[in-house]
Structure formats: structure tokens, C-alpha cells
Simulated assay, not measured.
Amino acid sequence: MNSIRIWAPESDTDTDSKAVRCIAEKIVSHYGSDFRILEGTKEAFNQASRQPDGLVKAVNTYLKSSRLVIFLLDADGVQSQAKRKEEPNSLINKVTRAVQQSQGKAVLVLIQQELEAWLLVDCLGVCCFFTKDSKIREKQKWVNFSKKNQAGKTNLITEAELGGKNAKEHLVELSKKILKVANPKLKPSDITQNQYSEQISDQVAKCIEITQGTLIRNDSLLEFSQHLKPPEENSIN
């Protein structure tokens, strides 16, 4: 059972799911693990969650072919999360029950500040995608640009006030800035057409570099990565 199953039932699009898998595979490569990354679908989750103990049974089925099931849910604000936990059949409570009954073979990781916060851990990687330049890391102009625009802790990107920027909006603005620097003659309409959107999250993920330096820029990404280490380095057995 040398596979790990990732279940992200809140993924809005197939591209989000592909982006998570891409990042997971990069983490596996970074740590030198030999795990195969598998996915649980949103449809399978919805079907299982409608049945009594359906998620528990689904997890047990997955564990016949995978050593670990990792649930990924979006982290809410403290008040919102507390409210959800008061509802017996809320998503987080259903997942928590399945995790608790898995005997340590299923875990829950809360993604802090959206999937885009995971993509933002590597500004140079984002530059690589939007400039379509695979050698961007060798160019001092873009290295300097990245140093200036790299967020230190991407899970701390929040809406400071109503109308402020969350991680997704932050990535949109970063992509527009990159496009302008790469081609100052671009028309505003062209920039809007080529800026970041959820539909290309998986393509951006392909350009993101996973290192210890990028992992520590997001606490939830770092937590996620710990479950993908080789067994001898991981307390999960």
C-alpha cells in the first residue's frame, strides 16, 4: 500500500483538484518519497456523506489500497468554524468523525487562506508561468522582482478590511503586475484576459518550486507536507 489518497471535497473546480495533486507530487519528490498520489472525488464524497457512517466506510475502503487518507478542507474564521462545529451534520464534523475512527490512518488538514495561498509560496514560480519563461530563475531582473513581491507568510494574507485582498485576489493582482513588467505595451484588456483565475490553478502549480524554503511560507502547506515524508521520517505508520 504505497499510495496516499487526498480528498478535497470543497474543491470548486477540477483544476483545483489537479493543482493540489500536482503540489502533493512535488512534495513527494522533494522528500524523496515513493508514494503514489491518488484522489477521492467530490462526487464520491457527496455520495458517501449522505449515508449513515458513509464517510467512515469510504475511508476504510480507501485504506485497503492506501496507507493514509488526507482530507483537505478550507479553514474558516474562528467564529464561522465554531458555528459549523455546533451543527452535527456539518462537513467538518462528518470529516472529523471519519478521522477519529480511522485509528490514525486518516488526517484532516485545513488549508489556510485558500489554495492560492499555497501557490503564492513561490513568487518566481508564478512569474515563470505568466511570462512563459522556463529560465526565469536565472534572470536577475525577475529574481529582484520576486524578492520585492514575495509574501513572507502566505497564510497571513487576509482581508484587513471590507473589500481588502484575500489570497486569491492577491494572486490576481500579482499576475497583473507580472504581465505589465513582462510587456509594458499590453493593453488593459489583454492583461485582464491573461490574469490569474481559478481555471488555471493547476497550470500555475506546475511552475511552483517546492523546497523547504517555500514550504515554510504557509503553515498549512507545511503541515500537509509532513504526511508525505518517507515512513522512516514520519511518525505516521
Rank of each mutant, 00 (worst) to 15 (best):
I136Q: 09
D202T: 02
K141L: 09
R137K: 11
E223S: 12
Q193T: 07
T41C: 07
V20T: 04
L156T: 08
F145K: 02
Y196R: 03
L110A: 05
S235A: 14
Q226M: 13
I6E: 00
K147N: 13
E159S: 12
T13C: 04
L63W: 14
E116C: 10
V69N: 00
E43H: 12
D202S: 13
H170C: 12
E173S: 09
A58H: 09
L55E: 01
L162T: 09
H170Q: 09
K176T: 03
F45K: 01
P231R: 15
A82M: 10
K187H: 05
N149W: 08
D122I: 03
E86F: 05
T41W: 09
E169F: 12
T96Y: 06
W7Q: 01
R21H: 06
G163D: 05
E233Y: 06
G77C: 07
Q81S: 12
R50P: 00
K168H: 11
K83F: 07
L171D: 03
E169G: 13
K85T: 08
T211R: 01
E39Y: 08
K148G: 01
Q112F: 04
V181M: 09
C207R: 00
D12E: 13
F145G: 08
L110Q: 14
G54E: 00
F224L: 03
V56T: 11
S11L: 01
Q103E: 13
L63D: 07
Q140G: 02
K168W: 07
L228D: 13
N149H: 15
Q150M: 07
N46G: 13
I216V: 15
E138N: 05
N60T: 03
Y31I: 10
Q212D: 14
L72R: 03
Q113G: 11
K26L: 05
Q226H: 14
L222G: 06
S220H: 07
Q100A: 11
P88N: 08
S65W: 06
L171W: 05
N46T: 04
V59H: 02
T61W: 05
I208K: 00
V109C: 10
N183C: 02
A160P: 02
K135W: 06
G77W: 03
R67M: 09
A8Y: 12
G54A: 01
Q113S: 14
G164N: 00
E209M: 04
R97T: 13
P230E: 01
S29N: 10
Y196V: 03
Q47A: 14
L108Y: 02
N89S: 08
S29H: 12
K83H: 07
D34A: 10
K147F: 06
A82V: 05
A117P: 05
L120A: 11
R36G: 08
Q113I: 11
E87G: 07
N46L: 14
G104I: 11
S189R: 09
H30G: 08
G164E: 04
R84L: 07
F224D: 15
Y196M: 04
K177Y: 00
V99S: 06
D133V: 08
S49L: 08
K153W: 08
K153Q: 13
D74T: 14
N234R: 09
N2E: 09
I236D: 12
K105W: 01
L110K: 06
S11M: 07
T154Y: 12
R97L: 11
Q195W: 07
E223I: 05
E10G: 03
D202R: 02
R84Q: 12
D12Q: 11
I136R: 04
S134K: 14
K85N: 10
F35H: 03
Q226F: 15
